[in-house]
Design a protein around this nucleic acid. Structure first.
Lengths: 377, 377
DNA sequence: CTGTTAGCGCCTTCAC
DNA sequence: GTGAAGGCGCTAACAG
């Protein structure tokens, strides 16, 4: 009725049916429809059937905004993404995002993406089409250090919780969220505070590197070099420890066999060149596919072939690893499992805000390709 | 006051301040605060200042759900993502998603991710933690053909509009959205219906392939092969036409120089082998980096070096192109511009639901790397 | 089991 | 310029 006051423009989409529409059609009260949707067991079978029939017929689905307002939940999970790193092989995020979207959908959640605002919105934008106020408010209450983006979403109750992925950089967001008592789960263990009180899921990088190294040892290699990240990278040191462990276990020497550099192709290339000249390894284990590609570059320059002449193993099983000839053997993180565990933790957390749960550590797998080379023995 | 009825648990986050809180603190009515936020010019300077001071002090930000309910808008844009294609070099989506998130944030929108539900949610899930009702309703009103996911979001008013990216597959979602009069903009032109009535933005693939081909011609190549997609791919045929155009323009022959295959490394490898054996090209232009990597494989097998012996150009400037030695020359799509244009169109569309606007065609650029090889002349 | 009542927090009339 | 109602669509309490 009251809806007729707003005659639809010809091109307008039809406004979705409401609870009232269903109630009218089914000949029951609005509340009964609500119950049919949220507490079906409260209704008598025949009433329920009638209501469901009406729901079907109208294609009714509860209005999100109204439900959110009422229940104080958005069923949205915030995820801050980083810019794609050009020139690297890092593609973990891509797979992870997809897995997370998939998994959380099954749990009734959607993923809301946001970024650390690189540049603040234009202050003198001419066309305030979309709520200049919000932007302005967000700007004035300037985002605290690393928490850019999180704050606004939280204060405007736009999301129920966050998934935090960049826990390795002695992470400001985590500290901020924790202090703020904001619900979040982390992909990545809390390196700096082993008994941090938030749920987390991580992949055992040391185990991955050990897997890679052992694989090469079993192929017959004894001079296996490591190219990893700088010492201030927890992840880097963790992975490196796996290489050390595997080598020590078999009584192989690691002296002069390791290099710690930036995560770029160029660094990997340089490091590989130095190592080849001095330590003369027959195989490389790298902390990332990016670094492994650096090794490929050096081999390429010297007329050596990955796999045939020198074995190379990378980390993360990127698309690069999968497509480059002759295939780059690489450690793969089980991001689908990570996503599943995170969503599980998320559900627990949202049900019981004080939930912490045990940190979950998953084991990566090794994907063997041509760069491993043939058995030497 | 009424809030005190719910004493916060120790670990609970503090409930965000509301309009009323601000009003009380500033000593004005709720409406005045609302105006201060949405129509600042209506207030007297001193009142405005006082209200803003209170807003600052409390860190107030309007509650999303309430605002959404009232304004019938969610300020959310839906984007359906596809699973990462393992074994390919396709990484366009990654960059695009980031660009879109960034751009739309500046316009006051967030991106909501969803997937074409591969598997329906378990019907007998034991723990209905999150609103089993919604899932159930969504299931019963079974998603129409290709519109999986779109329907629910639309009916529940969870998003204001969609960005559709897979317009090449004579796309069910597009047809469905159009018929439904749902607001959406497309990354990809409407191949099958040139005067489709929806806003779109696309990148000129023919121009890209022409750029690549001309680049090789200028290096001195005359026998340039094409490896593209099957004939039923509009995008593939479009890109191919750019190669044809460039070749014809310089009076070069294309006979026997082209191959149309699936977009996989294996297909590219086979195609390259055949072409090398029969047409003896000195250069390849490929419809994708994936196919280009197939060429790399073949060259690798034959002891030939990309760049030095045979030139190769790919398409999409993936991370693979950027990291593989000696670097794969590739056509790069300006996804940041695409995102910007899409958001522009989105704003127009949401302001005027009948907005169609001219399709926007952007031009790609060529990123030259080692695989182009030296000048032959 | 069903219906009635009362808001969630906000914005849009409309008076003042 | 400011304040007082009303209601967006839904669900949580009760009443019957």
């Amino acid at each position: 009725m009251s809806r007729m006051a707003h005659p639809r423009l010809p091109g307008q989409p039809k406004p979705p049916p409401t609870l009232a529409d269903v109630a009218e059609l089914a000949g029951v009260s609005r509340q009964t429809v609500s119950n049919a949707v949220n507490n079906p067991d409260l209704l008598r079978a025949d009433t329920l059937a009638r209501v469901q029939q009406a729901i079907q017929q109208l294609g009714y689905l509860p209005n999100r905004a109204a439900r959110n307002l009422r229940t104080r939940a958005s069923h949205l999970i915030g995820l801050r993404i980083q810019p794609v790193q050009e020139g690297t092989a890092n593609a973990l995020m891509d797979r992870f995002v997809h897995a997370l979207v998939d998994t959380s959908r099954e749990a009734g959640y959607h993923i809301l993406l946001f970024t650390a605002d690189t540049k603040p919105a234009d202050s003198d934008a001419a066309a305030p089409v979309v709520d200049p106020a919000v932007a302005r408010l967000g700007d004035t209450v300037a985002p605290v250090d690393g928490a850019a983006g999180y704050d606004d979403l939280l204060r405007s109750t736009a999301v129920d919780a966050f998934v935090v992925t960049d826990t390795y950089v002695s992470n400001p967001p985590v500290a901020w969220l924790r202090e703020r008592r904001a619900p979040f789960v982390a992909f990545g263990r809390p390196w700096d505070d082993p008994d941090a009180r938030h749920p987390w899921v991580d992949v055992d990088g040391a185990a991955g590197a050990e897997l890679a190294t052992t694989h090469l040892i079993e192929k017959g290699h004894t001079r296996i070099a490591w190219i990893g990240w700088r010492k201030d990278s927890w992840i880097g040191e963790d992975r490196r420890s796996g290489w050390v462990r595997a080598m020590r276990e078999r009584g192989l020497s690691t002296t002069g066999m390791a290099s710690r550099v930036e995560d770029t192709v160029a660094s990997g290339r340089t490091a590989a060149a130095h190592l080849l000249d001095e330590a003369r390894p027959t195989a490389f284990v790298c902390a990332s596919d990016t670094l492994a590609m650096g090794v490929f570059h050096t081999l390429n320059e010297r007329g050596l072939r990955p796999g045939d002449d020198v074995a190379v193993v990378g980390f993360d099983d990127s698309q690069v690893a999968q497509t480059v000839p002759p295939g780059l053997t690489s450690v793969r993180q089980p991001v689908e499992q990570v996503a599943a565990e995170l969503v599980k933790a998320l559900e627990a957390l949202l049900a019981h805000p004080s939930y912490v749960g045990p940190g979950v550590m998953l084991t990566p797998t090794l994907h063997v390709r041509g760069s491993s080379g043939p058995d030497l023995r």
